[in-house]
Amino acid sequence: MKRRFRIYYPFVNAGMQQVTTYRVDWIFYLLGNVVHSLVSFFIWQAVFLSGSEETLNGFTMPQMIVYFFLIFISDTMITSDASMMIAEEVRDGSIAMRMLRPVGYNATFLFFELGGKLLTQIVLIVPVVIGVEISRFVLSGVVQFSVLNLLLFFVSTILAYLINLFFSICFGFLAFVIKHIWGTNIMKNCIVSFCSGAMVPLSFMPDALKTVFMLLPFASLNYTPVMIYMGVYQGADLLFYFGLQIFWALFFWALSKLLAMVSAKHLTVQGG
């Protein structure tokens, strides 16, 4: 374990260095996400205010605030560029350099992204959670913040990230078949974003659709962590949804291993 840490720590470090080297990129990326979540919040607030009810599809105003800002955190947390990195490396042949190292192929992506993510999370999570909790307190008059839920949320987003990473790696291996996957990747991100509840809370959707998304890996990515933070899942429910996340993470991990093996045979390293 300790040995593994020593081997992969440099990748974590390299990931952080990448962020600090291209900090302006990174800051704009974060700002873009903040704006995005503000916009979606204000749209839903307008919908909320235009109705005469106390709740919208069972969401009170404070709950909506929590939902849209926490989903912003989880969405930032689970984002993985692995598919594009793989596709790019397949295209320009630099995937060869990764294969020449005595390290696990998937693990290098994981630890590299982890580095950048740690920084992102530190910068995001504290102010967003404080902001959300203050506005929730102001609106409802009671302190609803739970440290336990925050910790469980954090664990759940890590599982969600793993699901998305391994899914992205699987998807990236498509690059062996389609040499340019840029367009397909955008479509994939769009579908994931919609089906995981990042655009519209899943509870707003028709029951049948919601059930499907809940069981498919989608809900595990964004909706589940946020529900955990909001304290909606308790006891057996909580265990069930954690179990589902773990199942999907293992499923895509195994699939990515299989695809890596298959595509190694079809790899044609281009250039020089």
Partner: peptide, 21 residues
């Protein structure tokens, strides 16, 4: 025709990384 060094890392750190790997 291509490098195996990390483009953004100072060279010394690249060697440090390789040492661990």
């Amino acid at each position: 025709q291509r490098t195996q060094l990390w483009w953004d890392l100072p060279l010394r750190e690249t060697y440090g990384v390789l040492k661990e790997i």
